[in-house]
Amino acid sequence: MKLYLRYLEILFKSQLQYRASFILMTIGQFFVPLVMFASIYFLFEKFGQIEGWSFFEVALCFSIVHMSFAISVCFMRGFDSFSKLVVNAGFDRLLVRPRNTIVQVLGSNFEFTRLGRLIQSTMVLIWALLNISIEWNAFKVATLIFMLIGGIFIFSGIFILGASLCFFTVQGLELINIFTDGSREISQYPLSIYKDWVKNFFTFIVPLGIINYIPLMYLLGRGPYNDILSMLTPLIGIVFIIPCLYVWKFGVSKYLSAGS
């Protein structure tokens, strides 16, 4: 942990060296989800609803997913840009150090500019919450927070999986986008709008449904949901990261025998 903080300090210092670029990037990162959100807004202007969900309900879903994605990408940037580390043999450098590879890859990059994204999606969250009437209680507040936590872990797991792919091919990396950006795009709408196979995939394989659909229904008071169970569901997301870590470990051992 102390080591990780040390990494962060260095990365922060490094990125501040290029101040103009840093500011422009932060602004740019603010725009990315903004135009996505604007698109959704305009679509609702045309269509009014999507499969029974109103604009602000979708906005709530959108903001939770984008917030957890933004936080996750901040921390997991090292995994997200891992292909560079493999291609320029920077990973060899990590292997000759007596520390866990995961901490070192985490520490290899931290995207401070993604805070722009976080700010934008936080604003959407507040806007959405102000416009939906939810009967708040302690369980529901906890649910909201757990949705974020679960989301952060699921996206982090996806980033680790994506990075592990680099051990098997350095060419097919575009596939990673399907998983990272793709699952973000898909889960910014409640999963119930999709076909069953999509819904099932994103519930049982990549469990985004447990932070997106199920707790959303509970928050909005649709159907008889058990408070405690609903509150705890999003935390299953934390479990998702375990198999991802195993895939990573397997990838590292593959790398050790194949070389670059």
Binding site: R6, Y7, S14, N88, V96, R99, Q104
Partner: peptide, 30 residues
């Protein structure tokens, strides 16, 4: 690997944008 040091002449292990001292301190912690 605690017992060995490796220098790859064509690649750097130092962080480009911060003073060398900072890199050393990070290595100390590693």
């Amino acid at each position: 690997v605690k017992n060995i040091g490796v220098v790859f002449g064509q690649r750097s292990q130092l962080w480009a944008d911060v003073p060398v001292m900072d890199s050393f301190e990070l290595l100390r912690d590693i």
